[in-house]
Structures are given as C-alpha cells and as structure tokens.
Design a binder for these strands. Sequence first.
DNA 1: CGTAGCACTGTACCTCGGTACAATACCGCT
DNA 2: AGCGGTATTGTACCGAGGTACAGTGCTACG
Lengths: 214, 214
Amino acid sequence: MSRWLFFSAPGVESARWARAFPSAEFGCDPSAVNAVEPADLCWIMSSLPGWVEHTERFSRQGAFVVVMTLVESREELLTMLRAGGRGYIHALASPENLASVATSVMHGGYWLGSALIGELVASVGNLVESEGVPRSPRQLIGFKSLTAREREVCALVAKGLSNKEVAREFSISERTVKAHLSAVFEKLEIRDRLQLALLVKSHGHLLCDKSRQG
Amino acid sequence: MSRWLFFSAPGVESARWARAFPSAEFGCDPSAVNAVEPADLCWIMSSLPGWVEHTERFSRQGAFVVVMTLVESREELLTMLRAGGRGYIHALASPENLASVATSVMHGGYWLGSALIGELVASVGNLVESEGVPRSPRQLIGFKSLTAREREVCALVAKGLSNKEVAREFSISERTVKAHLSAVFEKLEIRDRLQLALLVKSHGHLLCDKSRQG
DNA sequence: CGTAGCACTGTACCTCGGTACAATACCGCT
DNA sequence: AGCGGTATTGTACCGAGGTACAGTGCTACG
C-alpha cells in the first residue's frame, strides 16, 4: 500500500486531515523527506516555501503529487501542472473530495477542479478557432521539416520579439533572422509572424520534436 | 441515486459495461432521451453522430457527461470540454478506471486522463512565459478600459487577420482599424499586434468582460 | 446648450516585416 | 573533389503596420 504524505504549515488543517485519514503521515517541511516511493501520494500546500521544487522532485521519483491551495489561481494551476503535479484542490475541501481526488490521481488521471478549468479551456479554445491559421496537415508536416535554428527563431518570435531583438539574442544579423523566417513561412504555408505565433501557441509541442534537429 | 446512462453504437462495449455496472441503463441513440436529471451521469461515445450536441444538451440539464473515445485527440478533448463535458476517457478503459472517473466527475472535478493533458499544458504553458508580454497589473486593468469596438477589433487581430481584413469584416476603413489599434496599444502598454495576440491568448477571457461595453 | 467620449476618416510620414537576387562558408556524404 | 543542406550576410525594394495631426458626426450627461 502506498503512503499518503501531507505537507502544510504547522497546524494548518492537518488535524482535520489526520482525523479523516488516520494512516497518513504529516509534516511541515518537504525538504525533510529525502525520498518517496513510486505510487506514494503527496499532498503539498502551495503556501509552503519551495513547493514547486518539491512537487517536481516527488513527481520525478514516481510519486503522485496533489497541490492544495488557499487561493486558487490560473497561474498557480499551470505552475503546478508543469512541475508534474496531478491534482489541484482547495485546502478546505471535504475529506470526501480529497478521497476522490486521490482515487483519480492514483489511477493516472488529473484532478483540476473548480472553475479554473473553464478559463483554461477558454484560452486554449481560442487557439482551436484561429481562422487565420487553417492548420492543414501540410503545416503540421512542415513543422517537422524545420531546422534547429529555425525552431529557435520561431520560439522567440512566438514570444513577441522583433527581428532586431531575435538577432541580438543570437548574435546574428537581422538579415539572417529574416532569412530563417522566410524559410519557416514557406514550410508552414503561412504569411507572417503573427500567424506563426498562433501556430506555435496551438502546436508548440511540435517545436520540441527533435526528429530533425541538427 | 442518480442514473448512469451509457450511449454507444449497438454492441460496442455495452455488454462489458453492463457486467461491471448492472444498474446502469444503455442506449444507442441519445436523441431518444428527452431529458436527464441533474446529477445523472451520461457516458457518450464520440463515434455517435451528434455527440457534441447531446453533450451540450445533457450538460445544460445538469447532468455530468463523460465522453468516451476510441481514438484520443487534442481537438476532440477541447470540443468535449467546450460542450460542457467533464470527463474524457478511452472506451476500452477498465471498469475500475471508469469508476474513478465517475467519482471525480460527480464530485465536481474533471477527468482528463492520458498524455493529452501534457500537450494541453505544453501549449498553455507557453502562454505563461511570453517574455514579450510582461502582463503587468496595469495591462490587466487596461483590458477593462477597452471599448466594445476595440474589443471586437482585438478579437480579430488575435486570430491573425490583417488590418485590411478587419476593415472589410466590419465595413469600415483601414484607417479606423488603425485608430482603434493605436488606442488599444496605449491602454495595454504594448507595442504591436503580435503582443496583442499573445495577450489575448493568455487573457482572452478578459475580452468577454462586459463591464464597460457600450 | 456645452462638454466629453466614442466611432469614424483622411493625409502624411516613418519604421518594420518580408521578399528577391546574390553570395560566402561550413559540414557530411558519396 | 563534388554535391546538398544549412547558416550566414548584403543590397534593394515594397507593402503592411503604426503614429502624428486634423477633422466630422453622434450620443449621453449635467
């Protein structure tokens, strides 16, 4: 049976959790725990210092991490997800809710409760619509044909940098940046940097594909 | 006790589900079900015609909808979420997994299993980083000060349309589009349409705020 | 009725983005 | 050595994006 480890500031809610989950363990300092076992379930308050690092560490070791918060925010949710967390829930949630979070997470799911998912979907939903970017199969294939340098340039352009700024970043001439971009536009069948940014935002993961890098 | 309703093409997996959940009801045509009760749990195969509409309808009536698919895709996941679905899972998932999905969903959570959430987070994660767009509090306040027309222009620009295209869309001159955009840039403290698009993609929900429209 | 805010338009001007044409240099492969 | 792909840079050109300055018309508000 996997362990349940709760981490929160001294006194915060831990008594309530202890009553609901007597077999769980409790602590106020994740740093004190050197290693967790795969399939362990860690509950970490986002008010603890270094919670992101601990979330990353525990996740890397194979444990499931659920982040508990007192104030839900979109930024925190995303940070949590990128650190490898699998669940995000309000610290005052009922034990019943915590139990279902645990069930989902330990079956490989994600628990992103509350209205936050709505905002998340709203943002991402926009991406799906982008009329300016038809996202033909050709474009997705084109992504794979980008060279390493072209991908680097794309990444910066998609962050809103100008040609001059990209040039400075890579210590190359603005002309070279333009050359890379022209190649990218042709491969992806788009017309300008704005459409590129939209495409990268909706298919950014393709930029990380190392299939042709080098 | 709320009902469980399974909808799939005749024969598809329903026998297996019936063994695992004897008290559930089964059908192959969601249209045949006029109304569901709040807190009912509907399982719909995405291979059924009109599954999006039925998902919307059932969600509107207060039921929880889980979409089951034979081929998981990012687009389908987003469509499902925007239709009000709360869970997305492979149709061949084990009864144990289905049970945990049900638990999460009926406690108000979302179940977005599989690696798809990874892609989703990768896309959205980019948004958080956008260095070109510092997203100061001033900018977020600025969003609220946008007029109705300015918001409309923003929405199209954020889709990748050129000034000329926006002008044609609204039957106004290109000059007027530029005027609106200049006002937007100043209010949001950004410098060009690309940064605007990034800002809208990351805070698109602010465009829908009607607080100052009119 | 005056004023303020918004939508809308025009001309002029400058910068930035993107393309065309052209060239050099490095690397790996045959 | 020759070839193909990539990275790099240059000059020139043109259109799109954005700003400055200036103006009209509408509506809501005191």
